[in-house]
Nucleic acid binder design. Sequence first.
DNA 1: AGCATTTGATTAACACGTTAACAAAGTGCG
DNA 2: CGCACTTTGTTAACGTGTTAATCAAATGCT
Lengths: 146, 146
Amino acid sequence: MASKIKNPSTTKSLPIALLRARERVMWPIRDMLANAGVTEQQWRVLRVLDEEGPMDPTSIAERAVLLLPSLTRILHKLESKGLITRKRDTTDRRRQIITATAEGRGIIAANMDTSRSILSKLREDLGEERHDQLIALLVDLTELED
Amino acid sequence: MASKIKNPSTTKSLPIALLRARERVMWPIRDMLANAGVTEQQWRVLRVLDEEGPMDPTSIAERAVLLLPSLTRILHKLESKGLITRKRDTTDRRRQIITATAEGRGIIAANMDTSRSILSKLREDLGEERHDQLIALLVDLTELED
DNA sequence: AGCATTTGATTAACACGTTAACAAAGTGCG
DNA sequence: CGCACTTTGTTAACGTGTTAATCAAATGCT
């Protein structure tokens, strides 16, 4: 399926390598999420709420790696699907508190095992040491200044 | 600017780590490209054409890591900007041959040094060995079967 | 040759990424 | 208090990601 690409400089560049790697990882995950009826980003939002409890949109955006304008749309969508609810913060009326509904948490519960097994298989296939080393390098790269 | 996130399991997951790393890498590159007046994807298409010469959309899509529907729109845009031209393949009239114009190649030439220096700085900051190791791991991950 | 299948490319529809502009609520300071 | 500034969240506009449907040209098979 993945054809052999010759070897122009772009093949070895970090941006392209990151792009292709993420494409490879998301393949099977997207299959799972399509069955669950949510997008990758909606899944991330629900997971953050499930793992860390109710929180405001700005915090969700940081944790789910989304920009606020995207999150605004995603929250509208999740709300219309009945997967989250919102209420205004009483002390700061600009701020909202988003909460996952039982149905929203249900989607996480119903798919978490599959998600974990997909990632476990990747870790195993790549080699556990190499996998963990990869993550460490990615985190280091992310945390570089400037 | 980048806030400290506590440490939920998602922080260590491969999909999120890849996402954050790519975000970090693309930051400075997007700045450069905004000045050049092209998007990241348009830049990739022009680079492929500049490095490998005229080719058909399907091949461009593979090399630039784009899906064909996206590429169709991008080629329309690049054509309207005068950065590429298209002609039909004479032997297979479904196929087109896309060629970068002098102006298109000019954009690459005008920004290639900046691009290289951004990536060199990242490599230096991460450590050359670790950088190269990271790319090797990403390539291995990408090439896993299944 | 005739017809089903495959391939190359496009279009459509929906969702997200990104930047800029904006509105409303809160904060700081004279 | 009053006003400038900041913060939170939204909307707008444009471009891309993704899947499905579609069309024309080519290919394979009988």
